[in-house]
Amino acid sequence: KELVLALYDYQEKSPREVTMKKGDILTLLNSTNKDWWKVEVADRQGFVPAAYVKKL
């Protein structure tokens, strides 16, 4: 499975999103959308801005 690194803190703004902290390592589930990537963090799945994460 592919992992991404959170480059910035992100606070979810809708139930479809997830909160992450800078430095978090997240499991990447889907990166087909260039703006929003689906990730899993702490047993929750949701979207984060693609610009806020980097593939490892």
Score class of each variant (00 low, 15 high):
E17G: 12
A51S: 14
A50I: 04
R44Q: 07
P15Q: 10
G23Y: 05
E40A: 11
A50P: 04
L7G: 02
Y10S: 00
D43S: 12
L56T: 06
M20P: 00
N30L: 10
V53Q: 01
L7T: 05
P15F: 09
T32H: 11
L56M: 10
G46L: 05
L26V: 07
L5G: 02
N30Q: 10
K13V: 09
L5P: 01
F47Q: 04
A42G: 15
K34V: 12
Q45R: 12
V53E: 01
L7C: 09
E2K: 10
T27C: 11
L5Y: 11
P15K: 10
E40H: 07
E40T: 08
P49S: 02
D35T: 14
T19G: 09
W36T: 02
D35E: 13
F47L: 09
G46S: 02
E17M: 06
K34G: 09
V39A: 01
V48D: 02
E17D: 06
K13G: 08
W36C: 07
L28T: 01
L7H: 03
A51T: 13
Q11I: 15
V18D: 00
V53M: 07
I25Y: 06
K21E: 06
T27F: 13
G46D: 00
S31W: 10
R44F: 05
M20Q: 02
K55N: 07
T19S: 15
K22H: 06
F47A: 03
L7P: 00
M20E: 00
E2G: 10
R16N: 13
K1L: 14
K22G: 05
V41Y: 12
L29C: 07
K54L: 14
S14M: 08
N30R: 07
V41E: 04
G46Q: 01
V53G: 01
L29D: 02
T32P: 04
M20S: 01
R44K: 11
K22C: 08
N33F: 09
P15L: 10
Y8L: 10
S31M: 09
E12Q: 13
E40K: 10
M20C: 06
T27G: 10
Y8F: 13
L56W: 09
P49H: 03
K54E: 12
Q11C: 11
D35G: 09
D35K: 14
Q45M: 12
V41C: 13
Q45D: 09
N30M: 09
K1D: 08
L28R: 00
K54M: 15
R16C: 15
V4T: 02
K54N: 06
T19M: 04
F47C: 11
Q11V: 14
Y10A: 00
A42I: 12
V18Q: 02
L26D: 00
L7W: 04
S14G: 13
E12Y: 05
W37L: 04
P49F: 03
D9G: 06
E12V: 06
A6G: 03
D43L: 09
E17T: 09
M20F: 10
D24R: 04
S14F: 07
R44D: 03
D35I: 15
D24P: 00
V48Y: 00
R16Q: 13
R16S: 13
R16A: 12
A51L: 12
L5Q: 10
G23M: 04
A51Y: 09
K1Y: 14
Y8Q: 14
Q11S: 12
E2Q: 14
E2C: 15
S31D: 15
V39H: 00
E17Y: 06
